[in-house]
Amino acid sequence: MNVESRKMILLIGGTISIAVGAYLPWLRTNPNLPPDAKIPTVYYTGMGAGFEGFDFALLGAIGLVLLVRVVSTRTMARTATTLAVGLGTIVFPAYYLSMSTLIGFSATFVPALGWYLTVLGGVLFTVVGGLELPSIVRRPEAITSRGE
């Protein structure tokens, strides 16, 4: 299996992971809360299954990466888009957890499967962009004088 086919597998895996992760809930009630804990009746975007709000932006970003990878022949554009969307897809879920004091790893509402799948997809996109990065970074050639 060559490097290009591995990158394609990672890209397809990242696309599926983000699409499924965007559909599934991102938050659930913390199972470690005591049975008598008062859970506020609030609804945050991402608590229910289905596409809503920010999910469309994530799917649009993934669509942009796939479009650029199919249409563009420039390695730099493909690499930069894949890397930027991958990093953004990692940073956005982290930012999402900091939206409220009720959301976090040890708060009232904790990340659910959809959140983890979205982060995994972002990591896969970042890996693909990172694998292509050396091909666009050129080493400066040694400068020699004409007299040598």
Rank of each mutant, 00 (worst) to 15 (best):
1 M>H: 12
3 V>I: 09
4 E>H: 10
4 E>N: 12
5 S>T: 15
5 S>F: 14
6 R>L: 13
9 I>T: 13
9 I>H: 13
9 I>G: 03
13 G>T: 02
15 T>F: 07
18 I>K: 01
18 I>G: 00
18 I>E: 03
18 I>C: 05
19 A>T: 12
21 G>R: 12
22 A>W: 00
24 L>C: 11
26 W>N: 01
27 L>H: 06
27 L>S: 04
29 T>Y: 05
32 N>L: 11
33 L>H: 03
35 P>V: 04
39 I>L: 08
39 I>A: 06
40 P>N: 03
42 V>A: 11
42 V>L: 10
42 V>P: 09
46 G>T: 12
47 M>C: 11
47 M>V: 08
48 G>F: 13
48 G>T: 11
48 G>K: 14
51 F>D: 02
52 E>V: 15
53 G>N: 09
54 F>H: 13
54 F>L: 13
55 D>V: 10
56 F>H: 15
56 F>N: 11
58 L>P: 02
58 L>E: 01
58 L>G: 05
60 G>L: 14
60 G>F: 09
61 A>R: 05
61 A>E: 01
64 L>R: 00
65 V>N: 06
66 L>C: 06
67 L>R: 03
68 V>R: 03
69 R>V: 08
69 R>Q: 11
70 V>F: 15
70 V>L: 15
72 S>F: 13
75 T>H: 09
75 T>F: 11
77 A>K: 10
79 T>R: 04
83 L>T: 08
83 L>I: 07
86 G>E: 02
87 L>P: 05
89 T>K: 01
89 T>V: 05
91 V>A: 15
95 Y>P: 00
96 Y>V: 08
99 M>T: 07
101 T>W: 01
102 L>M: 14
104 G>E: 00
106 S>N: 13
106 S>Y: 10
107 A>C: 04
109 F>N: 08
109 F>K: 04
110 V>M: 08
112 A>R: 02
113 L>Q: 10
117 L>E: 12
119 V>I: 15
122 G>C: 04
122 G>I: 00
122 G>F: 10
123 V>I: 12
123 V>H: 00
123 V>W: 02
127 V>E: 05
133 L>H: 02
133 L>N: 02
136 I>C: 08
137 V>Q: 09
138 R>W: 06
139 R>V: 09
142 A>K: 15
143 I>F: 07
144 T>W: 14
146 R>S: 06
146 R>H: 10
146 R>K: 09
147 G>R: 11
